[in-house]
Simulated scan of single mutants.
Amino acid sequence: MTSRFQELMNNLEQLRLTKMSAYLPEYLDQINGKQLSFTEAMLNLTKAELDWRQGEHVDRIIKRARFPQVKLLKAFDFDFQPSVNRQLVMSFQDLAFLEKHENLIFIGSPGVGKTHLAIGVGIAACQQNKRTLFVNCHELLLRLGAAYKKGTLDRCIRRYARYDLLIIDEIGYLPIDHDEANLLFQLINARYEVHSTIITSNSELSTWVEIFQNPTVTSAILDRLVHRAHVIKITGKSYRLKQQN
């Protein structure tokens, strides 16, 4: 015959109260030993369950954001990159820039940590339940171009425009032709003063006209990106070279 305890455990499992089920025996011992009251034990059990569910929820949001790897801001070596304003960058975790629809632009040579910082801010956004997407610039342009050819560009742009935070990585690593520049402009324009975008680039903004090969489109893109933006220039050495030494 199934004991009352086993019946309770089965009920918790059917209700998918995973952590309550896992911790219940421990708390029953504390209740029986009069170390905790029933109310205190239940409070702790429900907190454990809620914390676990929140963690699972955040993990799903992070997975959907498609980061190439998980990197936290606290793991960034600010001592190795003294040109980066630690206080400013760490303040991005409170997401005030998202509420103001401001953009972040990280500029620097390859290997200085631009993508790490962008991912770190993105992780912070996910932890606060913000819809976030990380995408390489070249991959983004391929998707936009394919949507244009299929006649679904408007729908594609609306999808990207809905994200609370869109991270576009590595603008400038590969050349961008006239048509691609126009597609990127349409996306940036759709997000302008509605949602925030993070950009990483190895090129100074003044040289973007060489990347986009169109002064008019370049000016329009920069006008919307920089209007409300924090531009963080990283002038230090490459982490990759540091690791090789």
Rank of each mutant, 00 (worst) to 15 (best):
Ser3Phe: 12
Ser3Val: 05
Ser3His: 11
Leu8Ser: 13
Leu8Cys: 13
Met9Asn: 08
Asn11Leu: 14
Leu15Met: 12
Lys19Ala: 15
Ser21Arg: 14
Ala22Lys: 13
Tyr23Glu: 15
Leu24Val: 04
Glu26Cys: 08
Leu28Arg: 11
Ile31Val: 14
Gly33Asp: 11
Glu40Lys: 07
Thr46Phe: 04
Gly55Gln: 11
Asp59Val: 01
Lys63Val: 11
Arg64Leu: 09
Arg66Phe: 11
Phe67Asp: 01
Phe67Arg: 02
Pro68Phe: 02
Asp77Val: 03
Phe78Tyr: 14
Phe80Arg: 04
Arg86Cys: 02
Gln87Trp: 05
Leu88Thr: 06
Leu88Val: 08
Ser91Met: 03
Phe92Gln: 08
Leu95Phe: 03
Ala96Cys: 12
Ala96Trp: 10
Leu98His: 00
Glu102Phe: 13
Asn103Ile: 04
Ile105Val: 08
Pro110Trp: 08
Pro110Lys: 05
Pro110His: 08
Lys114Thr: 01
His116Asn: 03
His116Pro: 03
Ile123Ala: 09
Ala124Ser: 11
Gln128Glu: 01
Asn129Val: 07
Lys130Cys: 00
Leu133Asp: 00
Leu133Phe: 10
Val135Gly: 03
Asn136Leu: 05
Glu139Lys: 11
Glu139His: 10
Leu141Phe: 05
Tyr148Val: 11
Lys150Ala: 13
Thr152Met: 12
Arg158Ile: 00
Ala161Phe: 01
Arg162Tyr: 12
Tyr163Trp: 05
Tyr163Gln: 02
Asp164Leu: 01
Ile168Arg: 09
Asp169Glu: 08
Ile171Pro: 01
Gly172His: 00
Gly172Tyr: 07
Tyr173Asp: 08
Pro175Ala: 09
His178Asp: 13
Asn182Gly: 15
Leu187Gly: 04
Ala190Leu: 04
Val194Phe: 08
Val194Ala: 13
Thr200Asp: 06
Ser201Glu: 04
Leu205Asn: 06
Val209Gln: 14
Glu210Met: 11
Ile211Phe: 06
Phe212Lys: 10
Phe212Val: 02
Thr216Asn: 13
Val217Gly: 00
Thr218Ile: 10
Ser219Lys: 08
Ala220Glu: 04
Ile221His: 09
Arg224Thr: 03
Arg224Gln: 07
Arg224Asp: 06
Arg228Thr: 04
Ala229Val: 07
Lys233Gly: 07
Thr235Gln: 06
Thr235Cys: 09
Tyr239Val: 03
Leu241Ala: 08
